[in-house]
Simulated scan of single mutants.
Amino acid sequence: MCGIVGLHLRTPELYPRLGELLSGMLGEMSDRGADSAGVAVYGDPMWSPPGRGCVSVTDIEVVPDLGADVDVVQVDSSYLLSADMPSEALLERVRLSYPGALIAGFGADLAVLKGVGHPRALTDAWGLSKAQGWQGVGHTRMATESAVTPSGCHPYTVGPQQCLVHNGSFANHATIRRDLRRAGVVFDSENDTEVGARFVAQQLAAGRDVETALKELCATFDGFYTLLVSNHDSFAVVRDAIACKPAVIAETADWVAMASEYRALSELPGVESARIWEPEPEVVYAWTR
């Protein structure tokens, strides 16, 4: 049992409140997973300065020093790096200089934070309530498939500006991991969710849109799952064919949100007039900024 939350803001006037709203949503899902937590935030000007390449790093013992042209913002045990270069070029520099570091995410306008511990304590340590932006995704984890470590935390952001969180389990993840490794894909953990994330990233890199990628995932993966997938400008939700893992979506003119349970949405502004529903099995719900 894990908790998923996601918030896609349509109204710029709400951008300054993204972190505040996301913190409240994540806190409500703490009892669904108190082992660890993580968030992906799109558009915070301090964590991911606009117009710069960005890389999020964690599980590293020293403050990264990549030269005067790379800015470093420390957020608890994570480091958010930015520079006037493509994110992929900055990522390559990080990997060459710190091969043991865990890359939590990369891409323009994206900051990813992960940590082991209670979600409320982590969001306080991150100062998440002060974050800004147009989109945020969060996860609270109850570990079942792999160790409680930073590499086992969600979100999995293995493609540029991409993010995936997952409640459930993939029954055939070992087989698909082997196939992906044969294709040259490198993994950071033994977590089944990472297999789903890298599968989706491979699909997107091949030119498929997120809806097609998630339909292909549904056809390939066995198990019970609710997934939320985002990138720089989109936000998508899908459940397995039985839809046994809980999920609820709410939509207004100002925002789209999803969570594992309604209580995570109950304090969003205007929720009393929102359209609210449970996603149907294997139907991909997607929104674009």
Rank of each mutant, 00 (worst) to 15 (best):
4 I>L: 15
229 V>W: 15
157 T>P: 03
86 P>K: 00
146 S>W: 14
257 A>F: 14
47 W>M: 08
31 D>S: 13
220 T>F: 04
282 E>N: 10
189 S>E: 00
124 D>A: 15
278 E>L: 03
159 G>K: 07
2 C>D: 12
58 T>D: 06
12 P>G: 10
169 S>H: 15
42 Y>Q: 10
60 I>N: 00
19 G>E: 05
253 A>V: 13
58 T>I: 11
89 A>F: 02
94 V>P: 01
41 V>F: 05
70 V>D: 03
244 C>I: 14
177 R>A: 14
167 N>E: 11
126 W>E: 01
159 G>N: 10
117 G>Q: 12
264 A>S: 15
35 D>C: 11
51 G>L: 11
186 V>T: 14
51 G>N: 10
50 P>V: 11
289 R>S: 14
230 S>H: 12
268 L>N: 09
265 L>P: 08
180 L>D: 05
248 V>I: 14
23 S>R: 11
24 G>N: 08
109 D>N: 09
261 E>C: 01
66 L>H: 00
273 S>H: 14
178 R>G: 10
2 C>Y: 07
114 K>E: 02
275 R>Y: 12
232 H>Y: 13
171 A>I: 13
98 Y>W: 02
37 A>K: 09
211 E>D: 14
59 D>S: 14
111 A>E: 06
73 V>F: 03
28 E>I: 00
83 A>D: 09
158 V>Q: 03
227 L>V: 12
250 A>G: 14
116 V>Q: 02
233 D>L: 06
107 G>S: 06
172 N>G: 08
240 D>Y: 05
55 V>F: 02
239 R>Q: 15
168 G>Q: 01
31 D>E: 09
106 F>L: 06
108 A>Y: 10
246 P>R: 06
241 A>E: 13
107 G>M: 09
171 A>C: 00
271 V>A: 07
52 R>F: 01
123 T>Q: 07
220 T>R: 15
251 E>H: 05
132 Q>T: 13
3 G>P: 05
243 A>E: 11
93 R>S: 02
121 A>M: 06
125 A>K: 13
193 T>D: 04
54 C>P: 00
59 D>L: 09
55 V>Y: 02
180 L>K: 10
220 T>W: 10
77 S>R: 13
194 E>V: 12
100 G>M: 04
129 S>C: 00
18 L>D: 08
58 T>A: 03
66 L>A: 05
19 G>D: 03
37 A>R: 12
5 V>K: 05
112 V>I: 05
177 R>K: 15
262 Y>A: 14
57 V>G: 03
26 L>Q: 10
289 R>G: 14
90 L>P: 05
14 L>A: 09
202 Q>Y: 06
231 N>M: 08
42 Y>N: 04
62 V>S: 05
96 L>W: 01
269 P>K: 11
132 Q>V: 00
72 V>F: 01
173 H>F: 15
149 T>W: 01
181 R>Y: 06
281 P>C: 04
18 L>T: 07
36 S>A: 15
257 A>I: 12
273 S>I: 10
75 V>L: 01
24 G>P: 01
49 P>S: 12
214 L>N: 10
219 A>D: 14
220 T>Q: 11
69 D>T: 09
59 D>V: 03
189 S>N: 08
192 D>R: 08
87 S>T: 07
222 D>T: 11
140 T>Y: 05
34 A>M: 08
55 V>W: 01
209 D>H: 13
173 H>E: 13
113 L>T: 02
